[in-house]
């Protein structure tokens, strides 16, 4: 028994010392001397020397003048990462993709679809039946319930509706979302309730157009217009990565965004849009590379690096224009 005890203790001490101290210390030493930059997270220093991001970690870009990364299920939170884990049979996945598509999709001839969605929405007919909003809530009760929870004003709005309709007396607000929308759809055809900020005050308004209509109802519009000839959007623009921090987009996705970025940057700098576009396209093609030196996959660009490379050009252009 003593022999067993000695062997166990000896192994315990040695494995802890070697596997948990010496081994990581050796790698720490090599990392911090030979690969210092990447061992600390591949951070990129900004003009003031403070880090403005990591080459490996996606950060959000919202402005039109920037290339935008893939959607992130964790809102680009690099301290608590993750993916959607939604399967193909989960409507939440299709809904998220459709909401992103609505405002940006174009017909094959280049016209945007957004206005057509709004015009169709205002007519309030889906598959020949009146009441788009009511049908939306009935088909996707989960989404209707999510709307109630999305904003405290939404919940208040439903609560005041319950007061006027005492027959609806279930306990939870979310469970009343579907009857609420059915009743709302009858009372306010062709509109959708959204909390809007107006003159420092926030209130629920019945809107007829705007980004909410374009995004929420794009999938239904699509089902009413299955024959519409639409341009396909590169999948990585609308499908989220596993960790929510994928730093790359495909070159196709960057080229899809090129017009928006070029137009916006041309407007800021006052230079001709065509010239700016050519310049940025050259930059994209120069920076694009496929994984494993081209042996696997398609050409990608690193969003932060491209946006960084654009920034000084922009500044230089501005100073020369002055």
């Amino acid at each position: 028994m003593m022999a067993h005890l000695r062997a166990n203790l000896w192994l315990l001490v040695m494995t802890l010392l070697i596997c948990s101290v010496a081994y990581p210390a050796a790698l720490l030493g090599i990392g911090q001397t030979v690969f210092r930059d990447s061992a600390n997270g591949s951070l990129i220093a900004g003009p003031d020397g403070k880090p403005i991001g990591s080459r490996l970690i996606a950060q959000p870009f919202t402005g039109d003048e920037y290339f935008q990364p893939r959607p992130s299920y964790v809102s680009y939170n690099a301290a608590a990462t993750g993916g959607s884990n939604w399967g193909a049979s989960n409507y939440l996945l299709r809904d998220r993709v459709a909401r992103q598509l609505g405002p940006i999709v174009k017909y094959k001839d280049g016209r945007p679809v957004a206005q057509d969605i709004e015009a169709w929405f205002q007519k309030d007919q889906f598959q020949g039946q009146p009441g788009i909003v009511a049908q939306w809530a009935q088909a996707h009760s989960g989404l209707a319930a999510a709307w109630v929870k999305a904003d405290p004003l939404h919940a208040d709005y439903v609560a005041s509706w319950i007061k006027q309709n005492p027959s609806a007396s279930e306990s939870k607000l979310e469970e009343l979302a579907v009857p609420f929308f059915i009743s709302y759809s009858k009372a306010h055809p062709g509109t959708f309730p959204v909390a809007v900020e107006q003159k420092a005050e926030k209130l629920v308004q019945s809107i007829k157009k705007g980004i909410e209509i374009q995004s929420i109802f794009f999938d239904m519009w699509r089902q009413d217009h299955p024959q519409a000839d639409l341009q396909a959007v590169p999948a990585d623009m609308v499908m989220a990565s596993g960790c929510g921090l994928d730093p790359h987009i495909t070159l196709d996705s960057a080229l899809y965004q090129l017009d928006r970025v070029a137009t916006s940057r041309a407007a800021q700098s006052g230079r001709p849009a065509a010239e700016v576009r050519t310049e940025i396209e050259a930059l994209l093609r120069e920076k694009a590379a496929a994984p494993l030196g081209g042996l696997a996959g398609v050409k990608l660009v690193n969003v932060l690096e491209v946006n960084l490379a654009l920034a000084p050009r922009d500044g230089a252009a501005r100073s020369s224009a002055e």
Binding site: W86, P226, D236, V238, A240, G242, D246, D252, P291, A296
Partner: peptide
């Protein structure tokens, strides 16, 4: 019948995938 969303899925299913490893990774 359900109409397709206008997404170019030539790289397969990209939900939950990273781009930098290669297409079939």
């Amino acid at each position: 019948a359900v109409a397709a969303l206008p997404v170019d899925q030539s790289l397969g299913n990209l939900e939950g995938k990273e781009l930098r490893f290669g297409t079939s990774a």
